[in-house]
Design a binder for these strands. Sequence first.
DNA 1: CATGAGAAG
DNA 2: CTTCTCATG
Lengths: 261, 261
Amino acid sequence: MRVVTWNLNGIRAAHRKGLDDFIEKIDADIMLFQEVRALPEQMPKDWSEPEGYELIWHPADKKGYSGVMSCSRIEMDEIERGIDTNLDDSRDPEGRVLVTKHGNLSCINMYLPNGSSRQERQDYKDQWLEDMLDWSRKFVESKEPALLCGDLNIAHTENDIWNPKGNKRTSGFLDNERQWFDRLIDIGWEDLLRNHLGPIKGPYSWWSNRGRARELDRGWRIDYILANPAASETFISAEIIREGGLTVSDHAPVVADFADE
Amino acid sequence: MRVVTWNLNGIRAAHRKGLDDFIEKIDADIMLFQEVRALPEQMPKDWSEPEGYELIWHPADKKGYSGVMSCSRIEMDEIERGIDTNLDDSRDPEGRVLVTKHGNLSCINMYLPNGSSRQERQDYKDQWLEDMLDWSRKFVESKEPALLCGDLNIAHTENDIWNPKGNKRTSGFLDNERQWFDRLIDIGWEDLLRNHLGPIKGPYSWWSNRGRARELDRGWRIDYILANPAASETFISAEIIREGGLTVSDHAPVVADFADE
DNA sequence: CATGAGAAG
DNA sequence: CTTCTCATG
């Protein structure tokens, strides 16, 4: 079974740039997209839903902003939207969390807030991190397999960012964010790609559009597939796909393969 | 002496699409641009002022909106901005009128309000028409030559619009607007291109971006070079340039040639 | 249908 | 530097 997570930075722009070719080529069973930035009814007429997949959209209230969408070839049930939160928006108005169940596997499709615009958004992100950690316990502790996938907007270690020194004060690589990530691992979420590759520099999943960051591979790893112990048991391999999806989004897709039983 | 008037629909977009080539090719002495939609300091660094010309910018207060700019190879003095108006904006905050003098020739660079968005703007346009007519008398009555050039946002006669029947209720071809244009001619402004070509269908200077209006030449003539009697004496010829400037703006440039003495 | 601003990332 | 919306034409 193959799972893909990808921040599309606008599914309409991604579609123009060849998303369909990627979907065909990658041949995944479950695809979790973030930053879809559209309602289904806003899709152009030359677009059609990927054949053979069921789709569940969870857009933000605000048009053109955020939103996630999950796609499955395996029969899928919607479990919940949003996290239990102290921020008074349990409706998840920013379209950040969609949980679906595929057989006994739970998939959390998550787009964590970005804190880089203003302090107010960093405060929002920080509160979100606390709420999300507690909320995620029921999944990580489950005897059934669960995956936490998406754009977490945090690079965990110095290996997960090209320029660690220069970004000590940048949202996404702040000490408190990295410590939060340690706690996420402590409660049982396993970073499949990192465990698979070991403590090497990179690979990255996002590159700034400024300068020639992508060309020079000066990126961040902020897109993850995390697994609870039950899901880890069947894990085979994981990778970040740099070629192919190259010009579709400023993020690269992350793929993981699991044994079918 | 050659004069050009052209609504650029954004000088930055026009520059990307080859404005410089046009300027080089047309070899005009005076160029009057409307809907510049930029401050000089917003121009990209790969832009440089047309060589051999002096420039006067008259932008709107509101960024990215309206604004005219006059360009002259002949020494030029600024005479006034805006029209004497009953609307309490004699500062011309929408950047619609710039009068310059080149030797004894006065050039009015005008971008008349568009009334198509809401009734409020049509009312504004109607008031503007009244004020402008009175204001223009001093130029039309002068013994010195004067030109009134620009996007007047009105098609005068049925020859000046591809679909007169279908646009009887469209701003820019309303009865009161066309009657106002009659009065403009009555007070002495001469429509050089129309007088030159006679009462034929067309040519047009603007085409909607919808459908294939330009390709099918379903346009409007709303850009004019009008002359007072003194300027008309030296008039040689006029035309609307369809080729060349084709993809630079949704308007085509209007050119007129005058004898040097 | 296109321009440009502006919010957001 | 790019996405998308929105106002304006």
